[in-house]
């Protein structure tokens, strides 16, 4: 109560309250407003506290399962991980499980594979999608709208239908257990072409024309004039493709049977089989495997969230 009235006094000096007072002065007949008058800032403090409380509870729900996994991974062999009630804080925190799991779990191989696949997929998409989007946005040619409709229509076809023929095709092309086999089916996406076309459409045509008068060819206009101007869309596409490639599970599951080619999600899944019920090791391996993406996310979170906002058209 004491704290509340102190906060009230402090808040009285803030400009918000001044504005509110002014509003009340201009509308003297509003009874409701006047009744609220005695402690508007006290209410504000309460509201803020309530907001933070809700935010924190939701946070706990969103990170709780990860924290519980982390706690389990830090428990020593002598501690019962099935204790009831659950022990949220490990008795003798130890990194021994991490050391042990790294002996059987070739984390760095998986990390390397995931990184190679993600970089190749992102690079291929940035290049091929923006190449294909350029004539669709800025050139006149016969069958243009047909080509565009055909490209967009691929968004409607679920990969889960295609995975069977693609698997047969990949086997015939000798792509099983290769990086190329992992990357090629996702090397161009209709979403990427759509996104880049949108970006190119927003750039004024005068830029192309003046460059053409200076003797630039179509490729030079694309690369030197347009590509630097659509950088924000390229970032969005890169983040989107990266997330898709990094988290992909179904296609690697089908096309890989050689453990040394496993990407991180497959590697982590194999932990469940290898340490059937050793939850300390499974937890430790899972925690190690999410560290890279959490670090990337921490650094680039602004782009991740902006990208998701702009990428909302993806089907």
């Amino acid at each position: 109560m004491n704290q509340n009235s102190e906060a009230l006094k402090q808040d009285d000096r803030t400009p918000v309250t001044v504005q509110e007072n002014e509003r009340k002065r201009t509308q003297p007949t509003n009874i409701k407003q006047r009744r609220r008058k005695p402690r508007p800032s006290g209410k504000k403090v309460l509201k803020t506290t309530l907001s933070y409380a809700t935010l924190s509870i939701v946070s706990l729900i969103m990170v709780g399962p990860f924290l519980w996994l982390l706690a389990t991974s830090l428990k020593s062999g002598s501690e019962n991980i099935f204790a009831y009630p659950p022990q949220f804080i490990p008795e003798n925190p130890t990194l021994a499980n991490f050391g042990a799991v790294l002996e059987y779990f070739p984390f760095f191989t998986y990390l390397f594979n995931s990184t190679v696949v993600a970089i190749l997929t992102v690079g291929a998409n940035l290049l091929f999608c923006s190449l294909a989007a350029y004539p669709l946005a800025r050139m006149q040619f016969r069958g243009k709208s047909l080509v565009f409709i055909l490209i967009i229509s691929t968004m409607m076809i679920p990969f889960q239908l295609l995975m069977i023929p693609i698997y047969i095709l990949a086997l015939n092309l000798g792509l099983q257990n290769t990086y190329l086999g992992l990357v090629l089916p996702h090397a161009t996406t209709a979403f990427g072409i759509f996104l880049m076309r949108q970006a190119f459409l927003t750039i004024p045509y005068e830029l192309d024309e003046s460059a053409r008068m200076d003797g630039a060819n179509a490729f030079q206009i694309w690369w030197k004039i347009l590509m630097p101007l659509v950088r924000p869309s390229l970032v969005t596409l890169a983040i989107f493709t990266f997330m898709m490639a990094w988290g992909d599970f179904l296609w690697p599951l089908i096309i890989l049977n050689d453990q040394s080619m496993y990407t991180l999600p497959l590697g982590v899944q194999s932990l469940q089989g290898n340490f059937s019920s050793n939850w300390r090791y499974i937890a430790a391996g899972s925690i190690i495997s999410v560290l890279p993406i959490i670090i990337v996310f921490a650094i680039l979170q602004r782009y991740f969230i902006e990208g998701a906002m702009k990428g909302a058209v993806k089907g």
Partner: peptide, 8 residues
């Protein structure tokens, strides 16, 4: 955070 973490 759960969005960027892999489903596995």
């Amino acid at each position: 955070l759960p969005v960027v973490t892999s489903m596995v």
